[in-house]
């Protein structure tokens, strides 16, 4: 069983090592881990996806809480939370295939962010299933490289995240218009720097 933990930590040297070391030493199985600073520069947010049974997942939460630099551990799962991943896919794209690739990109509301003579780089944002589905479809054109961020997640509409929203406003990168319907399944939210994840809920 997979569970997504959202871990608020002090933004200090060694904190990532502590968390990673904890997972290694206790044999917890980490699926993905994403880290970025929050609206408060003294705090970072880790989104950790862990695979394990109930006992293991309970221990993960308790052991994380035990770390002095960990401030809060919450569990974020759909439908109460939004989870997003970003992937960059370099796909083999001779001129004859470009239209077909662009159609797939369009359907997934992904973007082409780099064009070369024989290849394209596609950027996609969405939940894990959506990203995987798109990568699968692009596979038939010939994928040269895939880079995925790992999941970040945020609770929907709760008091806590609204608080974060107002702080987060000033950190949203200007010049990129947020999509209003980002919360709809599979909707892209555009590109956010990891540090801007606090603002993502605002866009939703």
């Amino acid at each position: 069983m997979k569970r997504t933990f959202s871990v608020l930590v002090e933004n200090q040297p060694g904190v990532l090592t502590r968390v990673a070391g904890l997972f290694g030493r206790r044999g917890f199985n980490i699926q993905s881990l994403a880290v970025g600073v929050t609206q408060d520069p003294s705090l970072s947010r880790m989104t950790i996806v862990v695979d394990g049974d109930d006992r293991v997942l309970e221990q993960v939460q308790k052991q994380l809480n035990k770390l002095v630099n960990v401030i809060k551990v919450s569990v974020l799962e759909a439908p109460e939370a939004i989870g997003r991943e970003l992937a960059l896919v370099r796909v083999h794209a001779p001129p004859a295939q470009r239209t077909a690739i662009m159609q797939v990109v369009d359907i997934f509301r992904a973007k082409i962010v780099d064009v070369a003579r024989r290849s394209l780089v596609v950027e996609i944002t969405g939940d894990e299933d959506k990203v995987s589905a798109m990568v699968d479809l692009l596979r038939e054109f010939g994928i040269m490289e895939v880079v995925r961020t790992g999941k970040i997640a945020m609770a929907r509409g709760s008091k806590e995240s609204r608080g974060g929203m107002w702080h987060g406003q000033s950190t949203i990168r200007s010049g990129r218009r947020p999509r209003a319907l980002a919360r709809l399944a599979g909707g892209g939210t555009g590109v956010w720097e990891p540090g801007e994840c606090a603002g993502a809920e605002l866009e939703g």
Binding site: R55, E58, Q59, K62, Q63, N65, K66
Partner: peptide, 8 residues
Amino acid sequence: VDPAELGK
């Protein structure tokens, strides 16, 4: 006193 011991 250590919650992580409970159920470990």
